[in-house]
Write a protein that binds this DNA or RNA. Sequence first.
DNA 1: TAGAAATAAGAACAATTGTTCAATTCCTGA
DNA 2: TCAGGAATTGAACAATTGTTCTTATTTCTA
Lengths: 197, 197
Amino acid sequence: MARTSGSHAKITGPKIQEAAQRLFARHGYAAVSMRQIATEVGVQVGALYNYTPDKQTLLVGLMTSHLEELLSAWGQEGAVATAAARLEQFTRFHIRFHKERPDAVFIAYMELRNLTPKNFETVEVLRRRYEGALEEILRSGVTEGAFAIADTKVATMGIIAMLTGLNTWFREDGRLSFDEVEDLYWGIVRNSVGLAG
Amino acid sequence: MARTSGSHAKITGPKIQEAAQRLFARHGYAAVSMRQIATEVGVQVGALYNYTPDKQTLLVGLMTSHLEELLSAWGQEGAVATAAARLEQFTRFHIRFHKERPDAVFIAYMELRNLTPKNFETVEVLRRRYEGALEEILRSGVTEGAFAIADTKVATMGIIAMLTGLNTWFREDGRLSFDEVEDLYWGIVRNSVGLAG
DNA sequence: TAGAAATAAGAACAATTGTTCAATTCCTGA
DNA sequence: TCAGGAATTGAACAATTGTTCTTATTTCTA
């Protein structure tokens, strides 16, 4: 056999990324073989190497494209007046964006140790840029006198960890709807920066 | 060769656990081979199987003993009067306990997907018991009228995620000392439950 | 419609994987 | 001191790993 009928890079390429993302998230990068990915795509393992030079590149590609999407989506949020409104906007944006991409989020946090140093740095630059967006909000809120925050960098890390942690426990069929949880999280964040209810 | 001079289970046993913990945390469970562990211990791979029936048991053993230590240590904290004081006690305890065991914490959070279903359930029971400890504090604070919390379960997950997240960014040689960060985190937690500064 | 480019199959590679087991040596208690 | 249990080696197993390469077929372009 050789090239199969109907095969096309525009189709196989995305399929490979989706399969890799799903499998890496489910079992972990190291535990997933190239053959498993190929099987999921419906292709033989050799074909994968028309799309990636190696397994590592597949991983770092998933991470960077996720973080770039994240930054791009945040950049497209509309402008709001006060720091408090901006913080609410960020909180709800973060929660919603991450909820829609559990696999990508999982990989971006869990597989950092499987990156080569150079790839790790690339990913970290993107992540820090996103953290910087929140910190800027917190700083402007302190300047406005609206927030009571002792250290904006520490608050940034605390808030992001809290928001991202939602992915680890929220279940669609649980006690609360997602909208309810979103409101509750915003309530906690609002409190945490010293905003009046 | 065979039994080596000076060899003893009381020594090799802990050494294996320490090596496995260090390596699993650094590279991930799936990425670490039994031979790497053996090399780290200074032993041949066959010897490991005097101490564990298989690799999976090594992993689940690390997780459960970490969580049991955590629960035991929390159980030994002294009694305090108010819910607010108890929450401060929990916050500082959690941060300090986790700071001392970065490898164990990392594994307990990152390697859940490598557990068999039965082992996963065992670990989850322990984790839920710990989460329950915090939720009980929050509930009693609400009863006292000291805390303003809309949903204690959600607040529990949010606070624990925030506190545990500290491990991912704190560096001993960073801008702030650990004691400073501990105080800052307590300030955020205090705010988040609506306690007056 | 012919030739070129794109796409995939399938076999092959050496290296590594978790686990088992007999053989061998050391250590301890009586 | 010596027997028996404890501890380890070292070899072996089949299965799986990431990657490369040649070959074959399909699709695209002119």
